[in-house]
């Protein structure tokens, strides 16, 4: 275990930059925060960024390939140029919270599984070292512990920083993390932690892992949602009612991963674009015939809940939720997924 003064955080970033890493950390954008390139200016680590970490790997929009049909009857297709333009430099994502790091492991099920490896996502994943900062102060919308995570959870992290009295205790979680620390850091920033520091970190961890945000009965809800009658349950009639049908919950979710693909063409050439899509939008399932199998907000809301807590579980043995609370905090009408899950946990289906 290593130790670093909190005031050395900017020097730490400088050392990474000097070693030719692109350093991505929380940046302010208007009134919101998101992950972007940092370095040179003082870094502030917010409790949780407004926008999720996922967009460093699965951006809101990206070009998958470009094509040109001018002069040839068949289109000439270029994917290498598109891949080269992004994600080739080694990167470090820093100031990540444990929920966001854990979400990447869930997304790996979709984009980096044995069945299918998405080259765009996996390249960025391979090139990125995740430095997670343990959460000293979970917020009022947080429920990470209910989903199996926690403010000190190491899942998905390569290095974990734990704040203790003016210092960070630095733990290499993965081989990748260990490699980065060995490669980059001069001993003037990083020191060996002593027993006292390690004791203090353990105490902070014990204090932080109170069951305060562990009270959402997700397992019970997931069990009910797995019931054959859950899909047609009358409870859906009530729980969706105040939903406005916007995409705040899905776009800010660190695990929502649905996308659309379309071509943007000018003349004979163009690009194939992948962009986030949301099951909350009517267009999401609108058929070419005009038929929509999810005609109202009720079916769309049900899809979101069922996908996270039932279909994803059936496919991947884990739920697609890390309890970050972004959907709870940012919903314009305070439609709280924790309440919805509690409602279903209490349902009795024959």
């Amino acid at each position: 275990m290593l130790k670093m003064a909190k005031t050395d955080l900017d020097a730490f970033v400088d050392a990474l930059v000097k070693a030719s890493y692109v350093v991505l950390g929380p940046i302010q954008e208007g009134e919101a925060t998101k992950f972007g390139v940092v370095g040179g200016e003082e870094i502030k680590i917010p409790r949780l960024t407004t926008r999720p970490l996922k967009e460093l790997f699965f951006p809101q929009d990206e070009s998958l390939l470009s094509f040109d049909r001018s002069g040839t009857p068949d289109a000439s297709v270029d994917t290498s140029g598109v891949l080269a333009s992004d994600g080739i430099s080694p990167r470090v994502a820093l100031g990540v919270r444990p929920c966001d790091a854990r979400a990447l492991v869930l997304l790996d099920n979709v984009f980096a599984s044995d069945d299918y490896r998405d080259p765009y996502y996996t390249l960025r994943r391979e090139k990125t070292v995740i430095i997670t900062f343990a959460c000293p102060l979970p917020g009022v919308a947080c429920f990470c512990e209910s989903t199996g995570g926690g403010p000190y959870d190491e899942t998905g992290s390569d290095i974990l920083f734990v704040e203790v009295a003016g210092s960070y205790l630095v733990k290499a979680v993965s081989e990748k993390g260990k490699g980065l620390l060995q490669e980059v850091f001069p001993p003037c920033i990083l020191h060996e932690a002593d027993d006292e520091d390690i004791q203090a970190a353990a105490e902070a961890r014990a204090r932080g892992e109170l069951p305060a945000n562990a009270g959402v009965p997700i397992e019970a809800a997931a069990a009910i949602l797995g019931h054959v009658d859950a899909f047609g349950d009358s409870a859906w009639e009530e729980v969706y009612k105040k939903c406005l049908g916007c995409a705040v919950c899905t776009y800010l979710c660190p695990t929502c991963h649905c996308f659309d693909i379309g071509d943007e063409v000018t003349g004979a050439s163009g690009e194939r674009i992948r962009n986030w899509d949301s099951c909350m939008f009517p267009l999401f399932t609108l058929h070419a015939s005009g038929h929509n199998p999810r005609p109202s907000r009720k079916e769309r809301f049900r899809q979101r809940v069922m996908h996270k807590f039932n279909y994803f579980v059936e496919n991947n043995d884990c739920m697609a939720c890390v309890g970050c609370g972004r959907c709870v905090e940012n919903c314009p009408v305070n439609l709280d997924i924790r309440q919805v899950l509690t409602t279903f946990a209490r349902r009795e289906l024959a």
Partner: peptide, 23 residues
């Protein structure tokens, strides 16, 4: 900075078009 979540449109009492032009 707009993430095209259309929360502004959905929260607006006067945005009631059955199909918005952007859709």
């Amino acid at each position: 900075r707009c993430i095209q979540c259309y929360a502004c449109r959905q929260a607006c009492p006067l945005c009631y078009c059955p199909e918005c032009f952007v859709d």
